[in-house]
Write a protein that binds this DNA or RNA. Structure first.
Lengths: 186, 186
DNA sequence: GTCTATAATAGGATAGAC
DNA sequence: GTCTATCCTATTATAGAC
């Protein structure tokens, strides 16, 4: 097929912003159409399965983004501190310094949770495992490494919730700032 | 007015379960009607402002619950450890050991966030301040106490997100188990 | 206070022309 | 691939009887 005016990837990225701001139930086709710049029919051309299909594509895009900007840096050569720092930088951009929500987190609300249970579980699981691997390379044994990894993801997710609740990105910025030290001290 | 068949408080509690499971956008009048056992028209009798009114009542109920089961125990006489333990017990029940979502957190998604910005901010703020007060009573100075309090709320919220993402309440249970120790060690 | 019935609108989805 | 027009259903909300 010929190259469309807008690459599918770009369409998906725009849909992502709607889903992450409004969740699955809250994202309407009207909003998705406006944000993507495509009419409803064009959206159905890209995503025959409708809204669920769009959300699935968005989740796959998140998986790809995570693989490239989180899992790969964490698994790359280098000191654990350096690998962790690369993830922190990527997350700081992804979440706009604490001002943007977590798509995965917002997909846990309502119908979406059971609809996308597996990809959500896999995404969190892969993230935790990649972090645990770094912690083991930093000298932790398996169990503490796993706990530190879960604690890390939990802190980031919690910080995003609190930042939105307090209307202040500072908790998120603090969590990211502190992260390197928790690896050394554990 | 005469006592209705079901106290308004009970109605609100049932609505709460719908909103906390589905968020604001995801909660439909049909679900709210079924969960409350009231017809749509009866719901509009209790809540003339419709869904927004229902959500507001639910948020007020959460504020009351927090005041009674979180703020009051934290401000009550007793050792800091004992006061904290009472909050932990209450939260463990509220969140069904990590199996239930946080209403406040789910209200941060979509339109609801700006609609209820103030009560949400106040609720998180009051919770944090009550915890900070306990921390100060435990010997921390103002700034560390505030940080510990924010960290505590953040961990609980993050744990609930992660527990739902992994489909496993263990992260939440761990956070609650660990909480008393963080007060002593900080 | 609660119900049945119904209005009015938004939402998701499709048809068919171009 | 994209658009306009349309369909059907669910959703929010109201009217009016009891």
């Amino acid at each position: 097929m010929p190259a469309p005016l807008m690459p599918r990837e770009e369409v998906v990225r725009r849909l992502l912003e709607v889903f992450r701001g409004h969740g699955f139930d809250g994202a309407s086709l009207a909003q998705l159409s406006k944000a993507s710049g495509l009419g409803k029919s064009s959206l159905y051309h890209y995503f025959p399965g409708g809204k669920e299909d769009m959300a699935r594509a968005v989740l796959e895009e998140v998986e790809r983004w995570m693989a490239a900007h989180v899992l790969a840096p964490l698994a790359a050569p280098g000191t654990p501190a350096r690998r962790l720092a690369r993830m922190v930088k990527a997350l700081d951009e992804l979440y706009d310094g604490g001002r943007a929500a977590c798509l995965l987190g917002n997909m846990l609300v309502g119908d979406a949770r059971r609809l996308f249970r597996k990809p959500l579980k896999d995404a969190f699981g892969a993230w935790i495992e990649a972090l645990a691997s770094v912690a083991r390379d930093a000298g932790m044994s398996a169990t503490p490494a796993r706990l530190w990894a879960e604690e890390t993801v939990l802190s980031i997710e919690g910080a995003l919730v609190l930042a939105r609740g307090l209307d202040d990105p500072e908790p998120f910025r603090r969590v990211l700032r502190r992260l390197p030290g928790t690896l050394a001290r554990s």
